[in-house]
């Protein structure tokens, strides 16, 4: 008599295996829901839409230019140095716009710093997939 003669149900209870797998998955899932779970990069990182990104970049440059130039104009009005700070502000604004674009493309958020110095920052940006609805790009 060999061990092969044991009824297969006892050796390899498929229901038990399945239960084990399910319990594991369920544990994983509940761990994800709670606040205490480790924060991981969201799955939204993928399918970045180029159009949405392109529009964002325009906004970023514009916003920085507005702030830079506007600040320059304010300082000019305060110091009476008419075109000087407007020009400086414009270039600083352009630089800020470039920085903004760099961070938007690199998915680095808005904090100061550069990728090499901040290896912990993962690609998490707003141009990712939209929440519940379609995933195509809507930026203009």
């Amino acid at each position: 008599m060999d061990s092969d003669d044991v009824p297969p149900g006892l050796r390899e209870l498929p229901g038990l295996r399945e239960l084990e797998e399910r319990v594991r998955l369920a544990k994983q899932r509940t761990a994800q829901v709670s606040w205490e779970a480790p924060a991981g990069p969201s799955a939204d990182d993928k399918n970045k839409s180029m159009l949405a990104l392109a529009f964002r970049l325009g906004t970023e440059i514009l916003a920085a230019l507005v702030i830079g130039t506007g600040g320059g104009v304010l300082i000019d009005g305060w110091l009476g140095s008419k075109p000087l700070f407007l020009l400086i502000g414009f270039f600083i604004g352009a630089g800020g716009g470039v920085v903004n674009v760099y961070r938007a493309v690199g998915g680095l958020g808005y904090a100061a710093g550069y990728p090499g110095a901040r290896p912990d920052i993962k690609c998490r940006e707003d141009s990712g997939a939209p929440p519940p609805a379609g995933s195509d790009d809507k930026g203009r």
Binding site: L16, L19, T30, V33, S34
Partner: peptide
């Protein structure tokens, strides 16, 4: 969540028992 985790614990217990 409590209910689910209770269920999971229970299922785990049952699994261990049947093991």
């Amino acid at each position: 969540e409590g209910r689910i985790s209770w269920d999971i614990t229970k299922a785990d217990e049952i699994r261990n028992e049947s093991n």
